[in-house]
Computed example of a mutant assay.
Amino acid sequence: MPVLDLTSSAVELTRAVCDIPSVSGDESVLADAIDQAVRALPHLSVHRDGDTIVARTELGRAQRVVIAGHIDTVPINGNLPTREVEVDGEAYLWGRGTVDMKAGLAVQLKLAAELADPRVDITWMWYDHEEVTADLNGLNRLAAHRPDLFAADFAILGEPSDGAVEGGCNGTLRAVVRTHGVRAHSARAWIGENAIHAAAPVLARLAEYRPREVAVEGLVYREGLNAVRITGGVAGNVIPDLCEVEVNYRFAPSRTVEKAAAHVRTVFEGFDVEVTDAAAGARPGLDAPLAQEFLAAVGATPSPKYGWTDVARFSALGIPAVNYGPGDPHLAHHDQERVPLRQIDAVEQGLRTWLAGR
């Protein structure tokens, strides 16, 4: 089993955790390495649920903060092992997971090892299955098994934020818009009705759609409604009787899942619409005292998080939560995924300054 050296630098630790492949569903080797490393730390109590590891300080502080990050990645595509590269004069660590989100994970592991006497009690959460469907998410499972571990006054997710602080997140909804027809031999197409042709108005409505920009608690969230997959057809000589257009709606955190679903059905009025998956967004929550202290300590001007992250899980529990991690979100899942070395160090220092209180 790989051994993680938590005394190494955050950059070296990033390389170590990235070089342990952990595609969603195959996180056990990395989870075992993390478990072994943190159980050796006497100032932490450690709990494990599947491949989710929770490590807590028990100092009796007046406030508790959850700091969390997922340990899985999207599939590898020739971008491991990691290597250092230079782009426009800046040093990066290149490879799968460097941005999403093992650099943030490495920073958290290093600080978990070194901060034995933080100003607040800390619950570190490192969880599996973030990159796949919500029902498999390690935090979702942990909340069902050990809801007591989520007690906190503030939460930070180490999702990539370019070293800045991103408040809240957009909600996300997936739906399938179906058109129906009648099968026939393509040599006698007039006998049938082509379901793929019937989907043309669906695509037209998407092309004409103008998304909103919505201000929520001082941050402006950009929405989006897009086709992400289209399927249809039976054979090369058959008029299709079914076409399915999968759409993804990213909506501002001021809109509920129910209102988001109603909006999508309105856009595609007259068509067969099935909502297949949805998750609410999270309001910024930056008016919380701990959030204000955190912003001041790291010297950050907050911005909105356009993608969905697990801050929404904490927000649903009434816990203000932000995203703060190294790496450009635009490079998450990219085959040229890479994180600036300076951002790894800067995020480590920002969290250390705030948590140590000095």
Rank of each mutant, 00 (worst) to 15 (best):
A346F: 03
S303K: 13
V216W: 01
R56F: 06
L13S: 02
R48E: 06
F154D: 13
G97L: 00
A252V: 06
D241T: 11
E86Y: 01
T123I: 08
Q63D: 12
D117K: 10
D128W: 06
E159M: 01
R212C: 14
Y127P: 00
A55F: 04
A207G: 14
I53R: 00
E114D: 13
L286Y: 06
G25T: 08
L80W: 08
W124M: 02
A297I: 12
E12W: 05
V298G: 05
D121R: 03
A134K: 11
D19A: 13
P329T: 05
T7H: 06
A112N: 02
A346K: 12
G181S: 07
V46S: 07
P284D: 03
E213T: 15
L13C: 01
G104W: 00
D135V: 14
G69T: 00
D153H: 14
L295S: 09
G233H: 02
L30V: 12
P253I: 03
G158C: 10
P340T: 03
L149M: 09
D310K: 02
K110C: 07
D148F: 08
E114A: 13
A62K: 14
F268K: 06
A235Q: 11
R64Y: 02
T266Q: 10
I156S: 04
L149Y: 10
V11Y: 00
D35F: 11
A175R: 06
V234D: 14
P302G: 06
P304C: 03
H43I: 12
G350T: 08
V29T: 15
T276R: 12
R188Y: 14
A37K: 11
Y127R: 02
D5V: 07
E27L: 10
H47N: 05
I122E: 05
A260C: 05
C169Q: 04
A316S: 13
A116P: 10
D328E: 09
T309D: 00
V87I: 15
P284Q: 09
R352A: 13
Y324Q: 07
R119F: 11
V216E: 06
L317Q: 15
L80E: 04
L142Y: 06
R342H: 15
V177N: 03
L295C: 09
R212A: 15
I34Q: 00
A296F: 09
R141T: 08
G167T: 05
V74H: 03
D100L: 00
H47K: 04
A151F: 07
H185V: 08
R48T: 13
R250D: 07
L59G: 11
G233M: 08
A296D: 14
G158W: 00
L295Q: 10
T73L: 04
L105C: 04
Q36I: 13
L173M: 15
L93S: 01
L149I: 08
L80A: 07
D32T: 15
T179E: 05
I196A: 11
F268E: 07
A215N: 14
A346M: 11
G69L: 00
A280Y: 10
V214M: 08
R229A: 14
D310P: 01
S28D: 12
L341Q: 07
Q63F: 09
L93R: 01
P42C: 10
A200L: 15
E58D: 13
D26N: 15
V257Q: 04
A155Y: 10
E130N: 09
Q108V: 01
Q336V: 13
H70Q: 01
G327H: 03
D5S: 14
